[in-house]
Amino acid sequence: MAQLPPYTTTGERIWHYAFRVICGLIFLFLILPILIVLPLSFNVEPYFSFTPGMLSLDPEAFSLRWYKDILRNGMAAPDAPLSLTWFADTWNNAQWMRAIRNSFFIGICATLLSTALGTLAAIGLSRSEMPYRRLIMSILISPMIVPLVITAAGMFFFYSKIQLSQTYIGVIMAHAVLGTPFVIITVTATLVGFDKSLVRASNSLGAGPIQTFFKIQMPLIIPGVISGGLFAFITSFDEVVAVLFLASPEQRTIPRQMWSGIREQISPTILAVATLLVLLSIILLTVIELLRRRSERLRGVTPS
């Protein structure tokens, strides 16, 4: 920590530490709700709160029961011995397993669509000769701003008319639209620092526009593209309003399953799923951070 200069008065010293304590409390406010689901998900009782046994760290009070429930809920024969048929049963019948499969399938398809289209558009928008740049940019960012209920309601009517509601394609399209603003924002941010003379140098050395793009531009903006893609993925992975309006039970995703779990029967299985999702976001955050560092290294920015 930075040393306080010698001329600070006692009052300033007190304030200096008080300020840190205040900030510490705010950090606690930010992080505590996320950490609290971890121990609660190992609760042996079907409650959302700490039991006396948990507080006294009694091993009897903890269990993996809710994690097993993720695999078992909805199975045809949950008590059958562990075997390939048991796993096949889980994979095909368990409600949460289906939600997990759906979330990944929809998330990955939507991410590919929005990243591909979003990256191209961001490259076009970063060119100074692009006409109506500002207007187009604000249209492309608007899915992030427009209240989700309005978006979902509009899509519900329109997609019903063209037979896309209650289909995977409909949900994927909706999620792709919602993810593109993040791709555009992150890729544009990477392109701001992009040295245009590199493209000119490549051209003057005889490379065509396509070769220049893949050999020069792409490697430099790829960290931005990947983090944009991850943003798009997490947007789809976390999205529930469009799914509520557009999806049939067949397309239930993890957030949709959590939604009905919270509204109908609140069971700690939700907390177990929540814990897994927190782990997933930690992984994604780590990847993003590594990418950011790599991008900074590539562009010659060194952290102090």
């Binding site: 689901v37 529930v240 939604w259 919270i262 907390l271 994604l284």
Partner: peptide, 14 residues
């Protein structure tokens, strides 16, 4: 980066 529903669930628990 954490799911909205996770955070909402957490607040219910708290």
């Amino acid at each position: 980066w954490t799911s909205l529903l996770v955070r909402t669930t957490a607040w219910i628990a708290i």
